[in-house]
Design a binder for these strands. Structure first.
Length: 515
RNA sequence: GUCCCGCUCGUCUAGCCCGGCCUAGGACACCAGAUUUUCAUUCUGGCGACACGGGUUCGAAUCCCGUGCGGGAUACCA
């Protein structure tokens, strides 16, 4: 009874969205930080709304952001089954007990009658709720309904007066008049338990100690806590976290963010960044730091520290975090992360990842500071592996200087005459590229011995000398060369570009645009 | 309508529980500058908030009340 036990209880009615992911993260983090257990319970009692395959997507989403569970689907556990539709006997037993204790009663009203009663109350200026018409039925009246073929639902007999206080971990004591709460349905006529009932039974049976869930359940906490009391049980501690809102401050919609967290995976957002961002939406690691790992979060996380006010989703901040995480990776890690997108875009063959590992690290490394998502990369570096088509800016840069074509031709000749390192195979293929390219991030410069005269530093010195000899302003020379080589006006340093491309391809592309 | 919750820079937040250290700190975004062959990265600087009104107090972002605004609930959904 001492081990903290927390749960995330999704309904398989749709994919895992941002809000769900966040409550999952907070429950998970609390369980881990408290040294407790984290479990998953599937609330599938609304069979009509269950969606095929939704569960798989939810579990995949959780796994993707790095959440694991100790009990639940796929892993089992001592308090199963973890699907509510497999626990129907249990609810039935509890329902009979509550009924027998007098804390619940059978209600024979049809949905239409309930609705009509509600409207009567509303018309009378009262709160619109179930009018409790069957709360005190005599046995004879009940028999009559049964005889008429009516099947009852079971409703909880709420106290009619007094106040009830729930001590929320984020909001303190929240008080409500019992009269505000109606006699809610515990079991539907078809025998299915409703959310509030199944939730109490399961939280009790699964020994749940803390419930962290969305603010929309704050009112349910009263109903549930009162049921716990009626059963002679102690309710768990509740913490109701605010909803995530869209940029406009309204409910999160498809316009603000994806409804499925796996879309972020598919678009190449680093999962650690997504986790970090979601956790940050309502919880702060410290006043001056907002990048943290899962482990760092666990070392500091306390349920009480979750922010009680709603947060708006901000794609810019998410992307900034993504970029930060990407820049943190080693080149080898980035290549591995980006591989699926490179393959999908058919930019390099699978085999290249083994045969040209270093080349790929060089190429990808040149873009490390330039992307926020793995998925952004493929289009940007296509020019390395395939003849580029010139974009508008490139065409402009080629045309800007009247002598540009002559310069390209002359520079191509110069490059052509530049010796490759002796140690390099004559059939160059891509072999002359498979050397480490130094970038700003990496101060290791290949030695001249290792590279002959085809290292970025030498290419730079040579190009500068070339410009000076001919009296060309360096900036005027660089732009047409970049255009010819890459087909665009953005990208890695020009000397890296020449180096990455290799001598033969560079010369060929320069000459092609020199005509 | 009624009930409940919330309200610090444009956004996420630190500070609030236990009033003075707050001329309110950080991050993202934005603007300017530095570096630079482009883009980006990086660095420097700038802009920018305690929703409003009353109290309590020597002193309030911090405590209390009211108003406003936002959100949630008001289901035989969860």
């Amino acid at each position: 009874m001492d081990t903290p036990r927390l749960r995330f209880a999704p309904s398989p009615t749709g994919p895992l969205h941002l809000g769900g992911a966040r409550t999952a993260i907070y429950n998970w983090a609390a369980a881990r930080a408290l040294g407790g257990r984290f479990l998953l319970r599937i609330e599938d009692t609304d069979t009509a709304r269950n969606v095929d395959g939704a569960l798989r997507i939810i579990l995949e989403g959780l796994t993707w952001i790095g959440i694991d569970w100790d009990e639940g689907p796929q892993v089992g556990g001592d308090y199963g089954p973890y699907f509510q539709t497999q626990r129907l006997d249990l609810y039935q037993r509890f329902a009979q007990d509550v009924l027998a204790s007098g804390h619940a009663y059978q209600c024979y009203a049809t949905p239409e009658e309930v609705e009509a009663g509600r409207e009567r109350l509303l018309a009378a200026g009262k709160k619109g709720m179930y009018d409790r018409r069957d709360r005190d039925l005599t046995p004879a009246q009940q028999k009559a309904f049964e005889a008429a073929g009516r099947v009852p639902s079971i409703r909880f007999r709420m106290p009619l007066e007094g106040k009830y206080v729930v001590d929320d971990m984020l909001r303190g004591k929240v008080e409500v008049d019992m009269g505000e709460l109606d006699d809610w349905v515990m079991v539907r006529p078809d025998g299915m338990p409703t959310y509030n009932f199944a939730c109490v039974v399961d939280d009790s049976e699964m020994l749940i100690s803390h419930v962290v869930r969305g603010e929309e359940h704050l009112m349910n906490a009263f109903k549930q806590a009162i049921l716990f009391d009626a059963l002679g049980l102690v309710p768990p501690r509740f913490a109701h976290v605010p909803l995530i809102l869209g940029k406009d401050g309204k409910k999160l919609s498809k316009r603000d963010t994806s409804t499925n967290i796996l879309d972020y995976r598919d678009r190449g957002y680093p999962p650690a960044a997504v986790f970090n961002y979601i956790a940050l939406l309502g919880w702060a690691y410290s006043g001056d730091r907002d990048v943290f790992s899962k482990d760092e979060m666990l070392a500091k996380f306390k349920i009480e520290d979750i922010h009680a006010a709603g947060a708006k989703f901000d794609e810019d901040k998410l992307l900034a975090l993504c970029g930060h995480y990407i820049r943190q990776m080693s080149r080898a890690e980035l290549v591995a992360a980006v591989k699926p997108w490179l393959l999908r875009a058919e930019i390099v063959p699978e085999s290249a990842f083994a045969s040209h590992a270093e080349l790929l690290e060089n190429v990808v490394g040149c873009y490390q500071e330039r992307i926020d998502r793995y998925g952004d990369l493929a289009d940007k570096l296509r020019w390395v592996f395939a003849e580029p088509t010139l974009d508008e800016a490139a065409i402009k840069n080629l045309a800007k200087q009247p002598e540009a074509k002559q310069w390209l031709a002359a520079y191509a000749d110069l490059l052509d005459a530049t010796p490759l390192p002796a140690s390099y195979p004559a059939n160059r293929g891509s072999a002359d590229r498979a050397v480490h390219v130094p970038t700003a991030k990496d101060s290791v410069t290949p030695s001249a011995e290792a590279l002959g005269f085809f290292a970025p530093a030498h290419i730079e010195a040579q190009m500068r000398a070339f410009a000076e000899q001919r009296g060309i302003k360096f900036g005027n020379l660089v732009h047409p060369i970049r255009a010819a080589l890459t087909g665009t006006d953005k990208g890695p340093g020009l000397f890296d570009v020449v180096f990455l491309l290799g001598k033969e391809a560079s010369v060929r592309r320069l000459r092609q645009h020199a005509r």
